[in-house]
Design a binder for these strands. Structure first.
Length: 604
DNA sequence: TACACCACTTAGAATTATATCC
DNA sequence: GGATATAATTCTAAGTGGTGTA
């Protein structure tokens, strides 16, 4: 294992230096991707705030959503078989069948819950005759449908340049018509202006509702939000909106209620918009305020570990975990409605193990639970003796499925945090610790080398944050293969190296016999060749380690949601790195405010 | 203080576009 | 110039946290 690997495996903040520096007041606030902010300045920080009455806009005009294309029945030669016999399905039943047929190659369709939920909902769409015949999913043969859709997607790939261009142009036209809105004098990009098409619900992890039918959304399900004095969007001919309202206390343009969980879905603006940018900026300003009082808060919760009151001790230990391990708050969830996942406040006794001594360290807590998106969190951390003793106390006389913090929930915790600092909630710790870690790691890792080396350092700093936040991904499908390719290159390079070494050796022997200038020079040349190949080999090996290390780590989430972009902008300016090397086009649009604002001595 | 509801941010997977390789 | 690897974009699920109500 390389030093680099070890370095990045830290998943707590123990040795992270908290750099205290002057807070930047750099004030290039004129422009934010064509937008202007009206900051109000307090004594410490510049805060973006447009309206003081809680309203989000004065004027909002848009064209409404783009609906999913209507169902197109499969050609009659594409057959569905039940119990070996061809059966012609009604259009409604057929549509739902195609949803399943399209997923035949997916793991989902082998899962019992998925199949059970699908079959139950499918039967609801069948005619009474179909319902009477089709009683067992195992007897259903969707193979021809599946092949048909595969062929369709192949055909799409094989389309001529002209056909592809035509589709591209049509998409562009729809984007121009529906993809933008006017909010307070600015034309803004809308994020998700297309309504989610019907299909089978794909929950993450062991979701009890996976496979259920996500129904088609019609205009009658849609609530439109826009300003009174705007041109209201028109529903498709012959249809009506559910409602048109004019609520400027919210930012969404369109909403509907989804049928799986009964939750509300929204159409909102793109991250590049003024309204999202300001909010993002505000988020990082709150995290920076936490920086200036985090020492006091830490002293406080350490003190609270000794409290006479159980609820205070639980609060203090939970907060310690949230701070040290960047755990999520952990709201309560309705049992049986979603996958069984937890965050800090909802940890159960079964999720931790205590070791008085493990691997040469004292008071070790082993965490093993499923977090957001059913991503496993596994970590062994040595903790203070007081924390350890408290955990023993919290676990006394409890069953494995009892709450670890039975006197605590996120609401209690956040109320407490609000009293410690205005605007402080549990999630601010994640933002703060992620950003401060990036800044600190960049300081530590950046060396005065070439640009690729610096970018490698940046990615390493980014990775340290991703590991802290437990941002994981499934290994890419092509991962093994691409590793193999790299290994082939490495092996070839190794052969090349041993050849070069052999040549060097014989050149040396030759020089010893001849003792002339020419053979001495030959030795030098061979030496250089060996060195060059060694370097190339090292580069390849680093790349392999890098890729291997990234196998299960996702850098994007932290980059997009946790790292104050001004840190990255400042770093780029300081080291002369083009911002394009760090942020792609979309990211530059999202972080336009920061790119415009931060200079090289910005301190988080 | 429980809870229902709502609005918003954060998340990894899936899909599509583009770059690179042969 | 076609195949393949990689990067960018899209998609939508799954969180957080606020508010109103009884």
């Amino acid at each position: 294992m390389s030093a680099f690997t070890k370095h990045n495996e830290k998943r707590s903040l123990d040795s992270v230096l908290l750099c205290v520096g002057k807070s930047s007041r750099s004030g290039h606030l004129r422009n934010c991707g064509g937008l202007s902010f009206t900051p109000c300045v307090d004594t410490e920080h510049i805060l973006p705030e447009r309206y003081t009455d809680g309203s989000k806009w004065r004027f909002l005009e848009h064209k409404g959503p783009v609906f999913a294309p209507p169902y197109e029945p499969v050609p009659s030669n594409v057959k569905f078989y039940y119990d070996g016999k061809h059966m012609r399905l009604s259009p409604q039943a057929e549509e739902v069948a195609t949803f399943f047929a399209k997923m035949l190659d997916h793991d989902y369709t082998t899962k019992d819950i998925f199949r059970k939920n699908f079959f139950k909902d499918w039967r609801k769409e069948m005619t009474s005759e179909e319902k009477a015949t089709i009683t067992d999913l195992k007897k259903c043969n969707f193979a021809e449908m599946n092949e048909y859709f595969k062929a369709q997607s192949e055909a799409r790939k094989a389309m001529s340049k002209e056909e592809k261009l035509k589709i591209k142009e049509e998409n562009e036209r729809i984007l121009q018509e529906y993809g933008f809105c006017i909010m307070d004098n600015h034309k803004e990009r809308i994020a998700n202006f297309r309504i989610e098409p019907p299909g089978l619900f794909r929950g993450r992890g062991d979701h009890p509702k996976m496979g259920m039918l996500k129904r088609r959304i019609r205009p009658e399900d849609i609530i439109i939000n826009c300003s009174k004095d705007s041109k209201h969007p028109k529903p498709p001919p012959g249809t009506k909106w559910k409602e048109v309202r004019h609520d400027n206390k919210v930012t969404w343009l369109v909403s509907w209620t989804e049928n799986i969980q009964g939750s509300i879905k929204y159409i909102m603006l793109n991250p590049s918009s003024r309204i999202k940018g300001e909010k993002d900026w505000q988020k990082y300003e709150t995290a920076r305020r936490l920086k200036s009082c985090v020492d006091r808060l830490r002293a406080q919760y350490r003190d609270d570990w000794k409290s006479k009151e159980m609820r205070i001790r639980q609060r203090a230990v939970a907060l310690y975990f949230i701070d040290k391990l960047a755990l999520r708050a952990g709201n309560e969830k309705e049992e049986g409605e979603t996958a069984d996942t937890v965050g800090c406040c909802s940890l159960r006794v079964e999720h931790i193990k205590l070791y008085p001594e493990k691997d040469g360290q004292e008071y070790v807590v082993e965490f093993d639970f499923l977090g957001k998106d059913s991503i496993r969190y596994y970590n062994k951390v040595p903790v203070e003796k007081r924390v350890y003793k408290n955990l023993q106390l919290f676990m006394e006389n409890k069953e494995p499925d009892d709450d670890l913090f039975d006197r605590l929930n996120t609401s209690i915790l956040n109320k407490h945090l609000q009293e410690l600092m205005d605007g402080l909630t549990a999630k601010v710790f994640r933002t703060y610790n992620a950003s401060i870690t990036l800044q600190q790691q960049l300081k530590e890792l950046t060396t005065d080398e070439n640009i690729p080396a610096k970018i490698l350092s940046y990615n390493r700093a980014n990775r340290a944050v991703a590991i802290l936040c437990n941002h994981q991904r499934a290994p890419p499908k092509t991962f093994e293969k691409s590793m193999q390719n790299l290994q082939t290159k490495i092996d070839a390079k190794k052969d090349q190296l041993s050849d070069a070494r052999r040549e060097l050796k014989s050149a040396k022997a030759d020089a010893k016999v001849r003792r002339d200038e020419k053979s001495k020079k030959a030795v030098e040349t061979k030496k250089k060749a060996v060195q060059r190949i060694e370097e190339q080999l090292m580069k390849l090996e680093v790349q392999a380690t890098d890729r291997e290390e990234n196998k299960q780590i996702a850098l994007g989430t932290s980059k997009l949601n946790y790292l104050d972009p001004r840190i990255s902008v400042a770093w780029c300016k300081k080291w002369g790195i083009p911002i394009e090397k760090i942020y792609n086009k979309t990211q530059r649009e999202k972080f336009a405010w920061a790119i415009d604002m931060a200079d090289e001595d910005f301190e988080f």
